[in-house]
Structures are given as C-alpha cells and as structure tokens.
Design a protein around this nucleic acid. Structure first.
Lengths: 140, 140
DNA sequence: TCATTCGTAACTATTATAGTTACAATATAG
DNA sequence: CTATATTGTAACTATAATAGTTACGAATGA
C-alpha cells in the first residue's frame, strides 16, 4: 500500500470546496467524488481544519467549507499540512560508525536531500488551490 | 516499513566503491558499513550493474567495483536506476468521472507533480558520486 | 580440492496506509 | 420534542511495499 495518497486527496477535497464556496459539502458527498470512504475524508478534513484551512458544522444540514481564500493556499502549504515527510529515507539501521563513509554519509545526504526537497517545495508553492481549480475547470 | 531506503543505500554503496577504486569490495564488507544483510546489498548491486555503474567478479577473491568514473554518475542517475517512483501518489481508486472535479483532477495533478519532480531531479543532478565522496571525506 | 564469493529464489517480519464498522455527540427541520 | 442527518473519533482489518533472512547452486582462485 506504501506511498501516501493524502496529499492528492487533500488537494482534491480543497478543489471541491473551492468550487462550492457558500454551500458546505458533506464528507459523504466528497467521498463520492474522491471514491473512498467518508471516514477517510473526515480524518483528512480534521487535519486541514487544525491548520485553519477549513471549518466544519456538525449536525443536520452540516458540512465543510473553506475558511481561507483558495488563492492563499499553496500546494506546499497543503503538503506540509498533511505531513508528507521527506521524499527520501535514510538507512533503516544506523550505518557503521567505525567506517569513514558509514560515519559521515548521513550528514552529507541530509544536506543534499534538504536541498532537493526545497527545490520541490518551491515548485509546489507556485500553484494555489485556486489555480488548481482553474486548471480543472479549463478542462471541461 | 513503508518508504524505500534503496536510494540512500545505493549512494552509500557507490561512495564506498568510489573510495576504493582498484580494490574490489565484497557484498559482506559493504553490508558491514551499511549495517544490513549482504543479500540486500547484492540485490541492489545487481540493479546498479544492469545500468552499467558497477561490475562484479564471482568466486574467490571476487567482489564489486565501479565501472564508470564517479564524476559521471549524478544522484539523479542513481535515483532513476533504483527506480524510486514519483514522490507523489494518485488516488488509490479512480475518482468519480461523473464529478467535474473528479473527472479532471488527475490530469491537472499529473502536470503539477511532474514539474515538482523535475525540479527535485534537477537539484539532484547537481551532485555526483565523486562530489558526495569529497563531502564525506571533508568531514573526517 | 577447498574456501570464498556471487546470484537468486523463496519465505518471513515489519509497517504505513487506508478501508471499514460502530457509535456518541451535535444540530436542524418540522 | 422527535426524527434525521451529520460530524468526530476510536478500534479493527486488509493490503502491499520493503527489507531481512535462509538456503543453495555456480563460479573462481589459492
């Protein structure tokens, strides 16, 4: 099952909410568009609420809506919100400290990986939820 | 167990081989530095051999060595060799084609993800195995 | 001939993810 | 007030990728 789809699903959810400002959407409706279980959606929305991107209304006629201008949410913000970690992973077990390479490789790789991840995030920061929605609508 | 350490381990292996040009290293020796099982190392080395980065000599006094100048192997090359996929993952199940957002979101996200991955790879391409080894040695 | 090493298949253990069930709490409509 | 719809969350299960491990045949050189 491996790599997480949370980022993709979060973007899908936010694009939906951005396309329906004014009328809150239920987790069941969103789940129908994403094609998954409503609980999965509610879990993710809970994370996005903690970051202040959305708000919820429990009870009859309740639902979810954006609480921030979708122009002000970048894909980098969302990636960080759903806590996707580094796209790189260090050794499962610490390398041998008695080996000159083993002793120093992680420090060197950390620096390189940080740069690469930063480059990726800079690119993601160039797109907003609003921009995403516009691209989706342009495909109709 | 989730995210793969293959890229990190492959870089560790290649840095070791680059630090010992002329004298082949055994998978057992490399495993000792990486702190894992020799079979894990041989599996990865098999992949790197298929890409022409290393060669092996079976039998007594056998082992592995670089078959390419470490200045000519970039981290992007290695990442591609070990087949780390995209750092992004689409929906587990296809979104609802009856929904305007569900129908178009994957096409839009693919384009955005490709750009972000490209930015990451461009950054990785700026470092070579030789450069990695130099940084490791600079830390002694 | 023997010890060493690669090459590779097969099996197991671990773990993150997300799908699912269940149910209490909340809120509105009527 | 009551019925209904909805969120909020815990608990459990299923799936799948990863890598650790065992086993053993093939190759090579001392």
């Amino acid at each position: 099952m491996n790599i997480s789809t949370r980022f993709t699903v979060a973007l899908h959810i936010l694009a939906l909410l951005a396309s329906s400002r004014g009328e809150p959407l239920t987790s069941a409706y969103i789940a129908g568009s994403v094609n998954t279980h409503a609980v999965v959606i509610r879990r993710l929305l809970g994370v996005l609420r903690r970051r202040g991107f959305v708000s919820s209304q429990p009870g009859n006629r309740g639902g979810w809506e954006l609480s921030v201008d979708p122009e002000r949410i970048t894909l980098m913000d969302v990636r960080r919100a759903v806590n996707e970690g580094s796209p790189f992973s260090m050794h499962r077990h610490p390398p041998n400290p008695a080996c000159p390479v083993g002793r120093n490789i992680q420090g060197v790789l950390s620096a390189v990986y940080d740069e690469a991840e930063r480059a990726m995030e800079d690119e993601l920061a160039r797109t907003t939820i609003k921009g995403l929605l516009r691209s989706v609508q342009a495909r109709q």
